[in-house]
Nucleic acid binder design. Structure first.
Length: 519
RNA sequence: CAGGGCGUAGCUCAGCUUGGUAGAGCGGCGGUUUUGGGAACCGCAGGUCGCAGGUUCAAAUCCUGUCGCCCUGACCA
């Protein structure tokens, strides 16, 4: 957020200083919307609360899917698919679960349309039992698990599903909160409590690693307090990132469900001693919200900045084609360059290359790619071709900073250049996060930290906490600040593992918790 | 669901108070001139003014109803 603003001089100054207006400092929420649009990642649809994910945004999701899916498979999970529709009675089985989701369920009540006599259509054929469009699939998957699981030999059962879900939200924001969103939900069943808890934490660690290594998004892992827990869960764990406005984003959750759902849905197995037992279950998920987190972690006042690992394309080749005489040669040179680069690898994956030969003015074209956040822009004109060189600009550097590099050298170094950008983005984000984590030991300091200037101050406050729900409610009411998590020990957060006393009540506290405003 | 605001061209909006031939900028298309940088000029296309009633010789404009969207709250991945 500290990027300098070039002031535009009067007279000559018709130049816009940034591609996105307002800037992050001027109006963060509006900046976010503008980036989503300018980067062509998504747009609002004609359907209230639902978004259209555009190709450039969907490609990010595909890369996220690919990365995570590999990690799920590597930890023994298999993909399956369960119905979009959940019988109403299934949701009713787990009391807390019903209560948690009842207010945001879309319900299907009819199965036919017929003419209404005025040229329109009306629903007909009422269903005997209404169907709920899944807000999450614990119940329908649980009921299936009940059939699949008979013996301890059937456990653990490790299933994941990639799907869409619907939660009828009042207020929506692209990627961060939409009525329909895409996600993955893992559901597992285990013979013992220990094993289920181990699974819960293992998947939390998978999320932490993915967020860090792929999204270049530093996250804190931890456990939710009672008030923030998933409906029906015994424990909810999460990864929390800090956005550039210093608000927290819950980027993924992993739930230890105990035997709550297995009791409600009769998921039982015969153990080694032939006793019938209830299985221990878990569920865990991340959603297209990660893309919102990506934008708010890395985007700048010129638009999106994509971490190479999940960028739809790693680089774009922009041929300089205005001279008719050299046009064909330049284009041929660029196509050869593209082919050579595509045969290179970045990590496990082939280098993803775009060649943009559209008949647009160079500046406009260039800015489109800047706004989309492509990691590298490679300009190639007659002059470069003569020297067998390319003109390279990095998205993580100011847009005017470009350098000529020999073609061979560039191709050879592409893997390490992309990795340098990826790692640099993580460092930068981590620095920003660390700069705004504060250890706080008095109530006064706590209130000042979050109070001063509604936008300017704040961040993550680390305090001791007695665990009182009433206290948490009071602070939420006063400051719109909540406990984001009780952090997992040993993450190197400042002062986190010391024992102390709650600054609000004076009660003893074993560990510090993370407080923040959140999305 | 409560409070506030807004529905006019693909987009952003003016016009409405004081009723009288539907506007601008951007974008799109075509052309000319440009070209290592978010270009300029000329021309063209594009709207039953959210929808339904009402008042009136006449409604984008006034009245009633209705639908939708946005913002602020409560709720949430």
């Amino acid at each position: 957020m500290s990027d300098k603003k070039q002031s535009n001089q009067k007279g000559s100054g018709k130049k816009q200083k940034t591609a996105i207006q307002p800037t992050r400092l001027e109006n963060y929420a509006e900046w976010y919307q503008q980036v989503v649009r300018a980067a062509e990642m998504a747009e609002t649809s004609d359907v209230r609360g639902c978004m259209v994910i555009k190709p450039w945004g969907y490609a990010v999701w595909e890369n996220i899917q690919q990365g995570l899916d590999g990690m799920f498979k590597a930890t023994g999970h298999r993909n399956a698919y369960f119905p979009l529709f959940i019988p109403l009675s299934y949701l009713e089985k787990e009391a807390e679960h019903v209560e948690g989701f009842a207010k945001e369920c879309a319900v299907v009540t009819h199965h036919r349309l017929e003419p209404d006599g005025e040229g329109g259509l009306q629903p007909a054929g009422a269903l005997e039992e209404p169907l709920v469009v899944r807000p999450t699939s614990e119940t329908i998957i649980g009921s299936t698990f009940a059939k699949w699981i008979e013996s301890w030999r059937d456990l653990p059962l490790l299933i994941n599903q990639w799907a869409n879900v619907v939660r009828w939200e009042m207020r929506t924001r692209l990627f961060l909160r939409t009525a329909e969103f895409l996600w993955q939900e893992g559901h597992t069943a285990h013979a013992t409590e220990e094993e289920a808890m181990e699974e819960t934490l293992k998947m939390l660690e998978v999320y932490r690693e993915f967020a860090t290594e792929w999204l270049a998004m530093p996250v804190i892992t931890g456990e939710k307090t009672e008030g923030e827990r998933f409906p029906g869960a015994v424990n909810t764990f999460c990864i929390e990132g800090m956005m550039q406005d210093r608000k927290a984003l819950q980027a993924g959750t992993s739930h230890f469900l105990g035997q709550n759902f297995s009791r409600a849905q009769d998921i039982t197995f015969a153990d080694r001693d032939t006793n019938i037992q209830h299985a221990w279950t878990t569920s865990w998920g991340v959603s297209t919200r990660l893309i919102g987190g990506l934008i708010m972690t890395h985007g700048d006042d010129d638009g999106m900045v994509m971490p190479p690992k999940v960028a739809p394309a790693h680089l774009v080749i922009l041929p300089v084609l205005h001279k008719e005489e050299t046009r064909e040669q330049v284009l041929a040179y660029c196509e050869r360059l593209a082919a050579e680069l595509r045969s290179c690898r970045y990590g496990e994956a082939p280098v993803r290359v775009e060649l943009d030969a559209r008949d647009l003015r160079g500046g406009e074209k260039s800015w489109q790619w800047i706004k989309r956040g492509i990691p590298l822009r490679v300009e190639v004109g007659p002059r470069d071709m003569e020297q067998d060189a390319v003109f390279v600009a990095r998205r993580d550097r100011p847009h005017s900073e470009k350098a000529s590099i020999g073609r061979g050298e560039f191709i050879e170094g592409i893997d390490s250049l992309l990795e340098e950008i990826q790692v640099g983005m993580l460092h930068r984000a981590r620095e920003h996060r660390d700069d705004h984590v504060r250890v706080i030991d008095t109530e006064q300091e706590f209130y000042d930290f979050f109070d001063k200037g509604s936008e300017g101050g704040g961040g993550f406050a680390m305090t001791h906490f007695c665990g009182s729900t009433e206290l948490e409610d009071r602070i939420k009411k006063d400051l719109a600040v909540t406990v984001r998590c009780v952090p997992t020990r040993g993450q190197g957060l400042p002062g986190q593992d010391e024992a102390g006393t709650c600054p609000f009540t004076g009660e003893p506290s074993a560990t510090r918790v993370v407080w923040a405003k959140s999305y």
